[in-house]
Write a protein that binds this DNA or RNA. Structure first.
Lengths: 109, 109
DNA sequence: CCAAAGAATTAGTCGACACTAATACATTAG
DNA sequence: CTAATGTATTAGTGTCGACTAATTCTTTGG
């Protein structure tokens, strides 16, 4: 009766503006460290770490530790639950999403 | 520096599972009353009214009062901010969303 | 006209969570 | 080795919001 639960995590995680901004910066960069993300974020390094933890648990980002730095990158399929949900409840976009999905299935082996 | 604000409202509104479920039921039905939505929702009529208020303010639903009933329906362009955001930050889906956007522009006069 | 039904609003409660400050842990530089 | 740097974690605080119970308002049925 419910969606996979992943959707819940994705929605809840992206609902917070600060955390969404972090995600957007991660997406914008190929790879980015916690320190860089902290700069100009307006919040503490600890807060950024916590947000990254949430994003990771939601499957939206992945990490690559290197020395004393940790590089974060966007998880390519992280938004899939959201895409799936929109394909079901997108109203107005639904038929078009369905067409898109069919199209993507062909394009993606 | 920020996204249109509407995105914030849409995200925050759809983040709550109960409210999202309400939205899904509204989408599923052509039109539906508060009473029907309350039935089987697990929460009070007052709570449903509050959720509908949020959904309305986020531009996700519209109302049509008729007698002592109020019929709610999905607002077709309500999810547009979310679609736009995903077209920017959808990673992996981005190119495909861009194609979709171009496609929609043609289809929609 | 009165009672009942449908919906919105209010005040109040409780839990979730975003944040800070402080600390702990690991790694690199000198 | 020692100090400094980068990140994660912890406890504690304050705010926000989801919910209920109760009330109000409107409309309809008898």
């Amino acid at each position: 009766m419910n969606q996979p639960a992943p959707l819940d995590a994705v929605m809840r995680t992206l609902a917070d503006p600060t955390r969404r901004a972090v995600f957007e910066r991660v997406v914008g960069a190929t790879e980015i460290t916690v320190g860089e993300l902290t700069r100009g974020s307006g919040v503490t390094q600890g807060a950024i770490s916590q947000h990254l933890k949430s994003l990771k648990q939601a499957g939206l980002v992945a990490e690559r530790p290197e020395g004393r730095n940790v590089y974060y990158r966007a998880e390519s399929k992280g938004l899939a639950p959201l895409v799936d949900w929109m394909s079901h409840y997108g109203v107005f976009w639904r038929e078009r999403f369905d067409q898109l999905h069919a199209l993507l299935k062909e394009m993606d082996p």
